[in-house]
Design a protein around this nucleic acid. Structure first.
Lengths: 234, 234
DNA sequence: TAGATTGTTAATCGATTAACAATC
DNA sequence: TAGATTGTTAATCGATTAACAATC
């Protein structure tokens, strides 16, 4: 049943980036199905729901082993548990947010982190106005204390929302602190060897540009649309 | 020189999604090059800078026509102007933000919109506390007045940051208002026929999951990394 | 058992890279 | 002119889809 080419500590070594990018979407749809009380689903029905092919779903899932049963389909909770495990939802990662400005505060208030099993330990800022305050129950500490804090706490992820010109030096400090992953929002492209630290650069402005582009091309086509799917599941 | 298969009002009809997704990145790098005072660049040098192949750059740009010159390379400002035009930076689109909560406020404060030529006309909210306030110089109006406002103003883009359960009804209202594009942050997957309205769903939580996944696989591999590029340029 | 649906291999499609003739 | 570098075609690679035997 499990015909993975190579495996290391239960994880397949080679999963294509295209598949990895789709995993969170499976996670969301399965969570929703559970909320609706569904216990069983076939690749065909899930495919209809998600606007993809049944083939793709079966291929994707089989990168990680056989989660289904011939003639039956997939058990929704079991599959959800497996996907959650693959996405390390139960790993109990700890995060800090660098920057207690508008963006940092917005992120700390979103339920995103706790829903995905990531615990925000603290926010860091330099500003007089911010340090000492609390947002969504999280303390804002002085940036100076970052190294001490990382020595005393296991920090896995740092979310970077500080001003652009501080991104690179702070990233360097976080690497020193042996943080495992950076989630960078600040338009600068950080690059490190993935062996050292994993970096996820999110450029919100890029999405706006793509939306602009698509509106402009729709306007100019008006209306012989090619009927492309709306979802940009990046 | 311009050997585009099909063209409509100066815009190629078929540009692959893979290419479109890369355009904002070209935009960013070219802007940076201009800031540095560069006037000229070859596909080879730009490729080194951006960690892609020169072939890819030339292929991508040629989807829109020949912007370079043999033996010389590309004129940085000319290329930037062309990319900006393709991405409709000068189109003068007008946007509104639905929801004046943490996320809406964070977005209105980011320089993202004005940098890309998009003008935020107003924010909308239902809350007593928000309506009447101003953020980054933008007024918060009552959600009830949305239809009136859209009748009196050209609204091209609506950024959706309101609570999840209100996303679908509000989206339906925006479609009625003939808004051209929705930029939805709220974890619900909106889907409309692209002829009706263009939708860009951004699921911030998905990025966190992917980061989780990559940290977890790095941890389990420790350390025979496959040397994959860090950038996730969605 | 018969029907359903997976896991998996093979075929197709699209996107990336390499190569090179055109040309500045 | 010679050197450089594009535009563009052809080759390769990867990802998606189709098909079907295995099996619940």
């Amino acid at each position: 049943m499990e015909q993975i080419e190579e495996e290391l500590y239960g994880r397949p070594v080679t999963v294509s980036p295209a598949v990895v990018k789709r995993l969170p979407r499976y996670y969301r749809y399965l969570r929703e199905l559970i909320a609706q009380g569904r216990t069983r689903i076939s690749s065909g029905e899930l495919a209809d729901l998600m606007n993809v092919t049944a083939s793709q779903i079966r291929q994707d899932l089989n990168c990680f082993g056989g989660f289904g049963q011939q003639g039956y389909g997939y058990n929704v909770s079991y599959l959800f548990a497996k996907i959650s495990e693959i996405l390390a939802v139960g790993a109990g990662f700890h995060a800090v947010i660098i920057g207690a400005g508008d963006l940092g505060r917005a992120l700390v208030h979103l339920s995103m982190f706790e829903k995905r099993g990531v615990d925000i330990l603290a926010m860091f800022d330099t500003g007089e106005g911010q340090v000492g305050q609390q947002f969504a129950g999280v303390d804002v500490l002085p940036l100076d204390s970052l190294e001490d804090f990382c020595r005393e706490n296991q920090v896995d992820i740092a979310v970077i929302t500080c001003p652009k010109d501080q991104v690179k030096p702070i990233a360097a400090r976080l690497v020193e602190c042996k943080v495992k992953g950076l989630w960078n929002y600040m338009g600068v492209e950080l690059k490190y060897d993935p062996g050292t630290i994993v970096v996820e650069n999110v450029h919100l402005g890029d999405f706006l540009m793509i939306l602009n582009y698509r509106i402009a091309s729709r306007d100019s086509q008006l209306s012989g649309g090619k009927g492309e799917a709306a979802e940009t599941d990046a």
